[in-house]
Write a protein that binds this DNA or RNA. Structure first.
Lengths: 223, 223
DNA sequence: ATAAGTATGTGGTTATAACCACATTTTACG
DNA sequence: CGTAAAATGTGGTTATAACCACATACTTAT
């Protein structure tokens, strides 16, 4: 297990060699190999360990009761999975974690005893802070997406999304990081329907748009 | 500021008196009063402080560029707000935090310097772990909701939701914590349309449902 | 400069869910 | 109980978005 690589991951970022050693020992770090399509963590079970992908890749997928499969995300080397389930007690996994191809994963016991409870060592503080950072970042993405997809109409979603970008950039003119297809996927709508709606919004004088460049037009009535 | 009450909040849970004192001092804890409808944190700005509601209540609302307001949540005493924005650097608030009525709020500087960086004191570790717990819990809710509302059809959403509950309870027969209206709101669909769809799913032999009690029927074809 | 490929927009059709008005069932409680 | 109130279900209509087929614009490579 390559320590230099580990020290660059989101989990162990900022640690010194001795801290890393202590952390790995305390967390019962165990390197495991999985064959392609081998299930690492099963939906419905609980875990006090999270996974850190070392090599290969892990996919998170859902298989509902009636047999429909949805792939939710891919975890690349250096990234973690199942961290939420490991830390929140008694939370059953709603998804499977499956090796996408032959993969090496470092399993880390951060559950209950793992993170809190004991001494105030520096490695523990750093680890917890790193996990906090991971979690909050994810949180920000999730709540943003939730907010942008909660309006029922396409127009509502576009407005919610563009408002956010406008706030982030502090301007009413900006580029978005999506092309039409990606924006449609993000907003959970169909591409051509999105194109149509953006067209209508132009006609209604709400905005101008050309490719991924948008300008918001506030109508006089909204003052 | 009542220390006993603070020690019961999600933020300071598990701290001893002296740890609480140290924490409050290091975070520059400042009690502030807000009048009804006074804006505590403005959308578009950044903050390195989170709020802990002591008295009254705070609402999180969004006002988009075209003037549409959406109330997203209410924060009760003992609960926190803006914690994500405080910790994730340079993240502009997408929402306003507004006093719902005359309220007392404890502002806590947990940003950048606030939480990591320094000594490995016990209070810092506990605080960070508490924040981690808050964040992960929220995370779990958000990703669940996102997953349950991402299918485009009502049927898809119902299936995703019921699958999750079934996994959590480990059974194909269970009660859900929502009545029809609440489930409709949660899944972001219209109540009567939901009732209809559940009716169709019964006809199709996918499930039986009576009020908030459901039983999943796996058809032979899905083996 | 042209052709090929990709991204975006548009018209028409269909499926679906919102919406409205009301019937029926269930629950609460005097 | 028995009645009022609340929750749930149903039929019919309309609005909306998905879907399909294709036109147009823009990009890239040769």
């Amino acid at each position: 297990m390559d320590k230099e690589k580990l020290k660059k991951t989101v989990v162990f970022r900022g640690m010194e060699d001795d801290e890393l050693d202590a952390a790995l020992a305390a967390l019962g770090a165990a390197e495991r190999k999985y064959a392609k399509d081998e299930v690492i963590l099963h939906a419905g079970s609980t875990t006090d360990m999270m996974g850190l992908v070392l090599e290969g890749s892990v996919r998170i997928e859902s298989n509902d009761i009636w047999g429909n499969r949805t792939i939710l995300s891919h975890i690349a080397p250096g990234q973690v999975f199942a961290e939420t389930y490991a830390i929140v007690e008694n939370a059953a996994l709603l998804v499977d974690a499956v090796a996408n191809r032959e993969s090496k994963v470092l399993m880390l016991g951060i559950g209950s005893a793992g993170i809190l409870g004991h001494d105030a060592s520096l490695w523990r503080l750093k680890l917890t802070a790193n996990m906090l950072s991971i979690s909050m970042q994810k949180n920000l993405m999730l709540s943003g997406r939730s907010f942008h997809t909660s309006p029922k109409s396409i127009r509502g979603r576009v407005m919610a999304y563009l408002s956010s970008v406008s706030l982030q950039t502090g301007s009413d003119e900006f580029d978005i990081p999506f092309d039409r297809q990606q924006l449609a996927d993000y907003l959970n709508v169909e591409r051509t329907a999105l194109s149509k709606e953006i067209g209508k919004m132009k006609q209604d004088g709400m905005l101008t748009a050309r490719k991924n460049h948008f300008r918001i037009l506030k109508s006089e009535t909204s003052l």
